[in-house]
Design a protein around this nucleic acid. Sequence first.
DNA 1: TTCATTTCTTAACTTAAGTGAACGAATTTA
DNA 2: TAAATTCGTTCACTTAAGTTAAGAAATGAA
Lengths: 203, 203
Amino acid sequence: MKQILLDFISKYITLTEEEEGVIGGSNVFRTVKKGTNLLKHGQTSDVEYFVLKGCLRTYYVVDGEEKTTAFYTEMEGVTPHCVISKKPSDYYISCVEDSVITVSNRDMDAEIFDKFPKFETLCRLMSEDLFAKQQISFDEFRISSPEQRYLNLLEKRPDLIQRVPQYQLASFLGMKPQSLSRLRARILDKSRSNVYLDSLIEN
Amino acid sequence: MKQILLDFISKYITLTEEEEGVIGGSNVFRTVKKGTNLLKHGQTSDVEYFVLKGCLRTYYVVDGEEKTTAFYTEMEGVTPHCVISKKPSDYYISCVEDSVITVSNRDMDAEIFDKFPKFETLCRLMSEDLFAKQQISFDEFRISSPEQRYLNLLEKRPDLIQRVPQYQLASFLGMKPQSLSRLRARILDKSRSNVYLDSLIEN
DNA sequence: TTCATTTCTTAACTTAAGTGAACGAATTTA
DNA sequence: TAAATTCGTTCACTTAAGTTAAGAAATGAA
């Protein structure tokens, strides 16, 4: 189990055995049941999570409605805003499936960074990388229509469409569940008529 | 001019005079005319920018149409994706107004981080902070309607609405220029009728 | 200043998303 | 297993955004 975490880290830097020990020591492995809330609106926290198996999601509640803004699956880490801002969280983090995660305290900072500067390099590289990836996602979201967003997700994260309830996907795609349902029917219609047209071309 | 940059950095860490010297030495100050492209689609680059005065924007060209995804104004830095990914850029960076910027080479990395570990701390803190802020912006964008996004921008970045052409704002808000124009007219209508209703209540 | 180009607005029409409600299917709970 | 709840789909209707086109306003260049 610990190996998944170390594999992930090895994408950024290589660790000595001593350093791997530090990682192992500062992480707690935990299994979480589907539906569990790891963080609630209004709470503060100083821990971050890394998903070894399963799926987490973040969502806001606006006018009594859940608005899902992110999913985290295998080999993805979540640092709640409140850990960085030190303010109460605006959103919830909950478990979409039974999951195995690591919970690590963010206050390793100063001391560990001092003893093992490599960890600061790791954090910098990961932050820069995540920032760049997030920016690309944001750009794509901005310049796409809801339909393009859905098709894009279908291509890039087909697993999410299988493992996540539709109503959660809908707000993630920036629309209502009914609209997503209709959109899917529309796409199916189109591809059916394309199959028909394609068969005309064949003959 | 250099002071603006140092003021910005002081939001994250405090620097000794020697360290300020390093910053001063590794940054080139440059004035750029409105309309200039600092980076074009397909180009690679290893420099990042920091805006001292003026406004930069990033945009994609999709089917011959400009899609603006970000604006950078005073005290904001831009690290093009291609600097991190080392691949040709997917987008353009250009100058919305005559501007004064710093251009700094990203290859200070290893050597300077080694001599002045504080700079790695600076980069880590800035990346984490930017990541968190971008995430909040993305979340807000996701859970808002185009109209809410416009009102939100009006509140948070009223300067942008003044200094940036509408057609650039439109794609930034995820819509067509005509829709933005209509939306603005709609909002004005609403507020006019509210003023009218308000005056009824007064009497 | 004048002309040319770009940008913004308006309008009519089309397409798609929001809303409210109903219903069946799936899942959870007792 | 049965009842209750949650979830997904469909429908009719409303609202808003996309599209195409025309013209006014602002901007830039000669």
